[in-house]
């Protein structure tokens, strides 16, 4: 049974017709134990079925441990969105938890951005990211019912695209209560920067850049 309505499938086919570089969804699951693993795999496969430029590889988190380590996957369900084609590249863009509700738009926007190879960030932010000399890990906590969250997720992923030093995760807060507890998440979106800094809400790009500069100072 299809998860997407026919009209939405058609809209996405039209949107994906603009994809010029192939995109690969590397999905990690474990069918017996993981909440929403099945649904996350189904979403990945259905999205991939809508364009010949999107492919999906499904791995078992336990059996395919080497590949999970290669992608630095530490929890499931997980999707790494990577560029395929002749010049494949893993930008460090990850979705942890089911990309349902409003977060489905994050998945779609990420696919478009990775294929385009252009983040759309301002020249100032790009310059800062290009000169970054230390790792930055962004974790954006979300819920599927949060309309503000995709803005925060997409901005974190835009940053990941601009620097190999930056990795950015969407983390569905309800599915990973231990992380929500660890980072004291009681509201979303909440962006955690390198474990020590955090930002509430979907902040404008200059504000997030200021927080990032503070975090790496």
């Amino acid at each position: 049974m299809s998860l997407l309505k026919e009209t939405d499938q058609q809209h996405l086919r039209e949107q994906f017709s603009a994809l010029d570089t192939p995109v690969k969804l590397v999905m990690f699951t474990q069918e017996m134990e993981c909440q929403y693993c099945t649904e996350t795999r189904m979403i990945s496969e259905e999205v991939a079925s809508l364009s010949e430029n999107i492919s999906v590889e499904v791995y078992d988190f336990v059996r395919d441990q080497e590949i999970a380590e290669q992608y630095n996957i530490d929890k499931i369900p997980a999707i790494a969105i990577v560029r395929g084609g002749k010049q494949p590249k893993d930008y460090g863009i990850r979705l942890y938890g089911i990309p349902s509700g409003y977060e489905f738009s994050s998945l779609i926007e990420n696919i478009m951005m990775v294929s385009r190879g252009e983040s759309g960030l301002s020249p100032e932010t790009k310059e800062w990211a290009a000169n970054l000399e230390q790792p930055v890990h962004l974790q954006v906590f979300v819920t599927p019912t949060c309309p503000y969250c995709p803005q925060a997720v997409i901005m974190a992923h835009q940053l990941a695209m601009e620097s190999d030093m930056i990795t950015a995760d969407m983390v569905e807060a309800i599915e990973f209560p231990h992380l929500s507890n660890r980072y004291q998440v009681q509201g979303v979106p909440r962006t955690v920067i390198n474990d020590d800094f955090h930002m509430e809400g979907a902040a404008p790009e200059p504000m997030l850049l200021g927080k990032l500069q503070e975090a790496v100072a």
Binding site: M1, L3, L4, D8, G101, F104
Partner: peptide
Amino acid sequence: MSLDLNLNIGLSTVGSS
């Protein structure tokens, strides 16, 4: 399917008139 994933909310429908 019993789970409503609400994939249509927030969906960017570029190309749709």
